[in-house]
Simulated scan of single mutants.
Amino acid sequence: MYDQDPSKKAAKPHHLGHRDRLRARARDGGLPALPDYELLELFLFLSQPQGDVKPIAKALLDRFGSLSGVLAASVEDMTTVKATDIKGRTKAVGKETALDLCALQEVARRVALEEATKRTVISSWTALLSYVRLALQHEPREQFRVLYLDRKNQLIRDEVQNKGTVDHAPVYPREVVRRALELSSSALIIVHNHPSGDPTPSRADIDMTKQVIEAARSLEIQVHDHLIVGRHGVASFKQLGLM
């Protein structure tokens, strides 16, 4: 039997062997050397054991703007993302893949929380800021949280008090203080996000903070700070001289 004319052989898929090559590069050069889309591919390999996942990885980054944005996205939002491969076939992010990526975000959040609670909150301030950014910087709606602390300024509980719209989350100072009493908390830190991305405090933010401080003062509960999380930073009321 004669060999088939090489020019007539079917072309191999461009992604054939790509997974092995990418894993080898990760081993040889280290994970930090990989661009975001290739790092994302490594996780997608686990959720989608066959096929080319590079278009999906790039489509996710295009849709959500960054690796942190991808991981912070909801399952519902992720499953709206579609990509077209080299053969023109459309592939969507399935619910299982989206759930796997959301689980990765939760792992990162818990690791950051561990770092923030190893020491007193005051002495691990950088770790605390990293934690609140990870938890809130990509939230699409405003979320009001309270970090309750004990007498040694160690974190007792991080609680979501309320969720709102894209620019407002209702806050009830008496509820904040009541919960502090239930937890035997002697201090707290208020945290909320601005989905617009700009962490600059609004007049309403300043007024609400004063109300919480007044309600807490009457019961000898200290309000250490109010942190507003934006997409590219965190504003501290204490550093801004607003409390």
Score class of each variant (00 low, 15 high):
Gln48Phe: 04
Leu136Cys: 00
Gly88Leu: 12
Asp100Phe: 12
Gly65Pro: 04
Ala112His: 11
Arg141Ala: 11
Arg109Lys: 15
Gly69Glu: 13
Ala33Arg: 14
Leu101Pro: 08
Val132Arg: 06
Ser47Thr: 15
Leu34Tyr: 07
Thr79Gln: 13
Leu134Arg: 12
Ala92Ile: 01
Asp100Glu: 08
Arg27Ser: 15
Asp100Val: 12
Gly65Asn: 10
Ala116Asp: 04
Arg119Lys: 15
Ala59Tyr: 03
Pro140His: 06
Gln143Ile: 14
Ala57Tyr: 06
Leu128Ala: 08
Arg133Phe: 02
Val121Pro: 00
Gly69Thr: 11
Phe64Glu: 09
Glu76Phe: 02
Pro32Cys: 09
Asp62Thr: 11
Gln143Pro: 01
Val111Pro: 00
Pro55Met: 02
Phe64Lys: 01
Tyr131Cys: 04
Leu147Gln: 01
Ala92Gln: 09
Val81Leu: 07
Leu31Cys: 02
Thr97Trp: 00
Leu129Ala: 04
Leu60Thr: 11
Lys118Ser: 06
Arg133Asp: 09
Thr79Ala: 00
Leu46Cys: 12
Gln143Ser: 15
Asp28Asn: 13
Ser123Val: 07
Gln48Trp: 03
Asp100Cys: 09
Leu147Phe: 08
Ser130Pro: 01
Ala26Cys: 13
Arg27Val: 13
Leu44Thr: 12
Asp100Asn: 12
Glu115Gly: 01
Ala73Ile: 02
Asp62Glu: 15
Ile86Arg: 05
Ala92Thr: 05
Cys102Arg: 14
Ser47His: 10
Leu147Thr: 04
Leu61Trp: 06
Glu115Ser: 05
Ser130His: 07
Leu44Gln: 03
Ala116Phe: 07
Val93Ile: 14
Leu42Asn: 10
Leu101Ser: 04
Gly65Gln: 11
Ala98Gln: 03
Ser68Leu: 09
Arg141Asp: 10
Gly65Ala: 07
Ile56His: 09
Arg89Leu: 13
Leu34Arg: 09
Thr80Phe: 00
Phe43Asn: 02
Gln143Arg: 15
Ala98Phe: 04
Leu42Met: 12
Ser130Asn: 14
Ala103Met: 12
Ala83Gln: 01
Val70Ile: 11
Val75Cys: 05
Leu99Lys: 08
Leu136Asn: 03
Leu46Glu: 15
Ala72Glu: 01
Val121Tyr: 10
Asp85Thr: 02
Glu142Ala: 09
Ala127Ile: 03
Gly51Pro: 01
Val111Leu: 12
